[in-house]
Simulated scan of single mutants.
Amino acid sequence: MIRFEHITKTYRKKSADVSALDDVSLEIATGEFVSVRGSSGSGKTTLLLTTAGMLRPSSGRVLMGDRELYAIPQHERATIRSHEIGFVFQMFHLVPYLNVLDNVLLAGTGKSSRDEAIRLLDGLGMAGRAGHHPAELSAGECQRTALARAFLNSPKLILADEPTGNLDPENATVVMEQLKAYQKLGGTVIVATHSERMDEVADRVVHLDHGRLQTMNAGD
């Protein structure tokens, strides 16, 4: 489904160049659950943003199927993000003046519906919080809201950036189970994380260290 060919992303900081990704080549199959592990600053978030068509690499190619993401017009990449990719941000990025249900519906593209949003919230144990605003929610509830928003359009690909990083063990387990359930329905899941817990549900673990791909381990 996704192929990275010699991806490099370099940032200019003061008088030095910093490589967030350094010659990364990787293939991810349709329906696979991949955990991208590494410490803070290892390049995990950069890899996700590049996969989503949000961050152009300095060199190399990103292919989704037979489409080279950064060789097509920006509006086509935006359409792919809207219809085929669900992104779960580490800091949730919920709109503070909208309630939970309306935050989820922000991801709607026309094929989604209010009923579907309510169904997703119910499955995540959030139906009773649909009318509440983000400031009234716990971190776990905010993350489950963000998950429902990402799932709304039944995208082919879910990208999740540290989805359990701010959560207690119980809520982290809920998020992991929901991501695994989405994979079982046919979705592809890529999670950036520093936690070993995601290895429990991932098919494969990819390690990044200072932007370089180190090892790839088969999951259980």
Rank of each mutant, 00 (worst) to 15 (best):
R81T: 10
Y70L: 07
G60L: 06
G53I: 08
A71H: 08
G65Q: 06
G65Y: 07
V62E: 02
L63N: 05
L69Q: 02
L48Q: 10
G65V: 06
G60W: 04
L47A: 11
S59R: 15
S82H: 05
V88N: 02
L49I: 02
Q90S: 09
Q74G: 01
R77D: 06
S58H: 07
R81S: 08
H83N: 13
M91D: 15
E76T: 10
L49V: 04
I72P: 01
R81Y: 08
M91R: 14
G65F: 09
L47I: 09
E84C: 01
R67P: 00
M54V: 15
G60R: 03
R61P: 00
F87Q: 03
T50W: 03
R61T: 14
L48F: 08
T46I: 11
I85P: 00
R61E: 14
R67G: 00
L49A: 13
M54Q: 14
L55C: 11
T79V: 11
Y70T: 06
A52V: 06
L55K: 11
V62P: 06
R61L: 12
E76V: 12
T79I: 09
G53Q: 09
E68W: 00
A78C: 07
R77W: 05
S59P: 00
F89V: 12
E68P: 00
I85D: 03
L55H: 10
T50C: 12
I80E: 06
G60I: 09
S82G: 03
F89R: 04
G86F: 06
F87A: 08
R61F: 02
R67E: 15
S58I: 07
H83G: 00
R56D: 05
S59M: 08
I72R: 01
P73V: 04
Q74E: 15
V62L: 14
V62A: 03
I85Q: 05
S58T: 15
E68I: 12
F87C: 05
L63M: 14
V88A: 05
A52I: 08
A71T: 05
L49S: 14
P57S: 12
L47Q: 03
Y70C: 06
R56Q: 15
G60H: 07
G86Y: 06
A52H: 10
T46R: 08
G86T: 11
I80V: 14
I72S: 02
R77K: 11
D66A: 14
Q74M: 11
M64S: 03
Q90G: 06
L63C: 11
I72N: 01
G86Q: 03
R56V: 13
I85C: 03
Q74L: 13
A78N: 13
A52R: 07
F89E: 05
V88C: 08
H83V: 05
E84K: 14
E84H: 13
H83M: 04
R56M: 13
T51W: 02
L47Y: 05
P57G: 12
M54E: 15
T79Q: 13
A71K: 13
A52N: 09
S82N: 14
D66G: 13
I80S: 02
T46M: 10
D66K: 14
T46N: 09
R56P: 00
M54H: 05
F92D: 01
Q74Y: 06
A78P: 03
I85K: 02
S58D: 07
V88L: 07
E76N: 04
Y70H: 04
V62I: 15
Q74H: 12
I85S: 03
F92V: 02
M54A: 15
